[in-house]
Nucleic acid binder design. Sequence first.
DNA 1: CGCACCCCAATTGTCTGTCAATCATGTTGA
DNA 2: TCAACATGATTGACAGACAATTGGGGTGCG
Lengths: 240, 240
Amino acid sequence: MNDAAPTPLTARRVAEDILRNAILVGELKPGQRLTERSLCELAGVGRTTVREAVRQLESEGLISTVPHRGPVVAVLSEGEARDLYELRAMLEGQAGRLCVLRGDARHAAALHAAVDQMEHARQAGSMLGILEANGAFYAALNAGARNEALRQAMLGVQNRLAFFRFTSTRWPGRAERSVAELRAIAAAVVARDAAAAEAACIRHIEASAELALLVLAERARGAAMVRGGRRNAMERGLIP
Amino acid sequence: MNDAAPTPLTARRVAEDILRNAILVGELKPGQRLTERSLCELAGVGRTTVREAVRQLESEGLISTVPHRGPVVAVLSEGEARDLYELRAMLEGQAGRLCVLRGDARHAAALHAAVDQMEHARQAGSMLGILEANGAFYAALNAGARNEALRQAMLGVQNRLAFFRFTSTRWPGRAERSVAELRAIAAAVVARDAAAAEAACIRHIEASAELALLVLAERARGAAMVRGGRRNAMERGLIP
DNA sequence: CGCACCCCAATTGTCTGTCAATCATGTTGA
DNA sequence: TCAACATGATTGACAGACAATTGGGGTGCG
């Protein structure tokens, strides 16, 4: 039942992955300017290929390009972040609802397993484990919802908000509450209560959004304090 | 308050628009194979530029590329169409809800104006007018909903389903019912009944989906009858 | 000292040409 | 009849080149 690796592994795809990871991990920071040449070195491919990869990441919302100025790692304004979290809440709420309506006991079990896995990782202090369990949870949710378009939309939004995943997960007490919120979702799915599942999903995302916007505001304050100095230098791509 | 035309009008953008229009209008038919050279001629640009434009349309879901085989105008399976319509119903339902929660009287008035415009175009038998009014309606809805991410998501889904817009609008009696459905949405927004607006949006999309899937099934039957003859030829890009 | 203007380096946008890798087709041979 | 092979077409990818544009630095003037 596994996907029979439809990956002809073209160089462009490799470059995309390298650049995407560099952004998601934070190696390339929001606002940082990217020259094509530096990306060529980073990805180890020619300029043509890099430009195509950049186009892809641009469409994913990870990069924004100003004509004749080149690509820049996308930086979310507070308004954009708010919009994206709102959209994410809608999408995941619907996913939760559909998971109840269309999923079976196996999906419910997978949800519970993912939550347990996350609780385990949390107690072990493994942030990577937490993120992995989070991925498993959403995989199970989407498997139950049985809507590929919805899944891809959720993935896209999550990627654009990936910037917050690390800081949010580290926030004191956040992981614990997050586990509780996911457990509530799983419980609603087990109970086959669609409305409750939808509401639980929305609550989870709203809690995430609240924290993320707080973090964003804090960063903005911090950035404002050094504005005029480092900020200009960073936007010019002079700070690694 | 108008957007100060942020269009540096690069050749790539022009090529994108040409190809996108060719697909949306149906000049390039679903399943048709596209060689890079033919696209170069069609768009009037070099191969490098065409490849970037194709990458963009690929991310919009209008083109699907098989490595080492080249781009193909995306063809929706019944399952994919169903998923997309379901997603669209969710998104537009939420847009309707938000339009009630956040919109003001001006948005409600714009919705009504768009419906009247559509009714006018329908009586005049102007399909182009109908589509234009439809665009105005969604512009008003999204203006009221005040969520740019949601708007873009809706636009993306609508584009992927653009194939059905023409055939659906032509369907006997469909335009009339469509006007009635949109009027119901506008009425709910005027009445400030969020739940009713959401439900009306969902009903509208579900009606569209029902017809589209019917059209799709009919086309599939028709295509099956000539399979082995024209179909292979078309997939090979030999039929214009 | 401040401001407007101009010139220049850096970078992007785009084209052309080239070459290997791969797929699809047609042909040959058992 | 079917399998293996040869062949042509097309994509994937690169390097190089050139015009267009941007941003910055320097200059001159008030």
